[in-house]
Design a protein around this nucleic acid. Structure first.
Length: 422
RNA sequence: AGAGAGAUGGCAGAGUGGUCGAAUGCGGCGGUCUUGAAAACCGUUGACUCGCAAGGGUCCGGGGGUUCGAAUCCCUCUCUCUCUGCCA
């Protein structure tokens, strides 16, 4: 959620920024917000003075009763009765204004950082970095969904039998390479100064609201209705919510957490050739890195996270590129996002394997995540990124490293796997 | 799942109708003392919100009620703990 004070003080800049994110009706929305806020404050001022008067009277009545001045006490009582009716009505009004305001505020996306490129569609994202060379494969090279069958390492039919589409079963070397990647990614995060966290993978509603999955994106999460809990779509949710309703001190900062979890996404309405095999799943594994920083340090932290993800992909010897997302393609809550894409040689496609974002104070405002500076509380900045999501990394390893003799394992993973070839 | 107990500030823990945003202890911060530290002592220390300010309002798990007045009484919901049962 944006900060109301910022909007008040930077009305035109807010509107202009929202347009860069292709937010519809920016002017009207901001006007409405300011109008409701104005009314809200007027109502509150009146309510406060009504209550103040009632408080004074209540104290007086106590004194009058003790002094035995019954008549005066009764007169005061009559006045409080009136005040009570008035304050009740004002409270109702205030509640209405607050609800209206909140309902609009949650529909307003975060404002893009100055460096976010103009643009509406994924084609307008800006390629800012490329690494590695795209491998030339032998003639009989196959896409990963054929390779996994040939080597019998991932079984979609079996997953289908046990659960349903999008829940693969990893077998033998398939399972072992998964475990190897998890350990590799976690160890790299540890070496980069992140503290490892093992969070719950079911979350309650409050947590869903905290990071913005609720109220809108309810349909994307699996819901356990008996207990009203949701399966996490990403470790970002439980890890960031550790810091919900928290006031940190200087000594606590910076916070750098890394967590491996399975992730669950219903992804309603997605189908087609682009989602074959490992390209899109209902359950997958991911290592997520989360940082909580002081506002003045958050962009430096973002760069640091980008460097971390770069080093992972380079150690895995995968060709990749980094895109700076344009305003129209960026997520609702993000101020600046870098997407990492790995080239998957047999599919001849770039696959998104990581998304690294700075949310500035947008999430923190809803989470009430603050810290103390000079005795004042101030919102912190939250950042997160995948480091990394497993399925598409595995897909590109399988495709890019296939040879006529088998699939080579990237050197860095060999000690973790215990084998060099599939 | 059954029975009981409970939910108060960063933590522990008093408070059972007005003078309570709340004793006390711990922790934190500042200071005295000390070469420095510890100890001791003194002071200070909740959040949100309206207001230029002075100052005001709200918050004792959530919601509702009784009352001139509620942390305190009533209703309700949620959660936690203990015992019993089940279980990795």
């Amino acid at each position: 959620m944006l900060q109301l004070n910022y909007i008040k003080e930077n009305k035109q800049a807010t509107i202009d920024s929202l347009k860069r994110k292709y937010f519809k009706n920016a002017e009207e929305t901001i006007e409405t917000v300011l109008g409701i806020d104005q009314k809200r404050r007027e109502t509150q001022a009146e309510l406060d003075s009504t209550l103040a008067r009632a408080n004074v009277l209540a104290k007086e009545i106590g004194g009058l009763m003790k002094a035995g001045k019954k008549e005066e006490a009764e007169a005061a009582k009559a006045e409080t009765a009136e005040l009570k009716v008035k304050s009740k009505a004002l409270e109702e009004d205030l509640k209405v204004s607050e609800t209206e305001l909140f309902d609009i505020m949650v529909t307003i996306p975060n404002l893009p950082h100055a460096s976010v490129p103009e643009g509406r569609t994924p084609e307008e994202n800006v390629n800012i970095f490329e690494f590695g060379t795209i491998p030339t494969l032998h003639e009989a090279a196959l896409p990963h969904w054929e390779l996994i069958k040939q080597y019998d390492i991932i079984d979609f039919d079996l997953g289908n039998k046990i659960t349903g589409a999008g829940f693969p079963v990893y077998k033998g070397k398939g399972a072992r390479i998964q475990r190897a990647m998890i350990n590799f990614f976690l160890n790299e995060a540890l070496a980069a100064g992140y503290m490892e966290i093992q969070p719950p993978i079911l979350i309650n509603k409050e947590s869903g609201y905290g990071t913005g999955q609720l109220p809108d994106k309810e349909g994307q999460m699996y819901h356990s209705t008996v207990d009203d809990l949701f399966l996490i779509p990403t470790a970002e949710v439980p890890v960031t919510n550790i810091y919900r309703d928290v006031i940190l001190t200087d000594n606590d900062l910076p916070i750098k957490n890394a967590a491996y979890t399975p992730c669950f996404r219903r992804e309603a309405g997605s189908w087609g050739a682009h989602v074959r095999g490992l390209n899109r799943l209902h359950q997958f594994d991911k290592i997520e890195i989360v940082q909580i920083r002081k506002p003045e340090e958050s962009y430096q932290a973002l760069d640091e996270m980008v460097e971390h993800v770069k080093s992972l992909l380079e150690k895995l010897e995968l060709p990749y590129r980094i895109l700076r997302l344009c305003g129209g393609d960026m997520g609702f809550t993000s101020a600046l996002t870098y997407d990492f894409e790995v080239y998957s040689a047999a599919q001849k496609r770039w696959l998104e394997v990581s998304s690294v974002s700075n949310f500035e104070s947008y999430q923190a405002n809803r989470l009430k995540l603050r810290y103390k500076v000079d005795g004042k509380t101030q919102l912190l900045h939250t950042l997160n990124g995948s480091a990394l999501a497993l399925p598409r990394i595995l897909a590109s390893i399988l495709e890019n490293f296939q040879t006529t003799e088998g699939i080579k394992i990237p050197k860095v993973l060999v000690p973790y796997c215990g084998f060099e070839m599939i």
